[in-house]
Amino acid sequence: MGIVKISDQLHEEIRKASTTMVRSINSQSEYWIKIGMLAELNPTMTYAEIIKQQLAHANVTVGENLHE
Rank of each mutant, 00 (worst) to 15 (best):
S27E: 12
I33G: 08
K5I: 05
K52Y: 02
I33H: 07
M37C: 08
K34N: 11
D8I: 05
V62K: 10
T19S: 09
I50S: 06
Q54I: 01
K34I: 06
V60Q: 05
G63E: 08
M37K: 15
Q53T: 14
E13M: 04
I35D: 03
Y31Q: 08
I25S: 05
I3N: 10
W32A: 05
V62I: 14
A58C: 04
N26P: 07
M1I: 04
I25V: 15
L66C: 10
G36M: 02
Q9Y: 08
T19I: 05
G36S: 06
T46W: 02
T44Y: 01
A48Q: 14
E13K: 15
V62S: 09
T19W: 00
K16P: 01
Q9S: 13
N65M: 05
E30K: 14
L10E: 10
A56I: 12
P43H: 01
G2F: 02
L10D: 12
M37Q: 13
V60M: 05
E64H: 10
V60S: 03
T20S: 08
G36V: 06
T44R: 05
V4M: 02
A17N: 13
L38T: 11
M21C: 08
G36A: 03
A17E: 09
T44P: 02
I50H: 10
I25K: 12
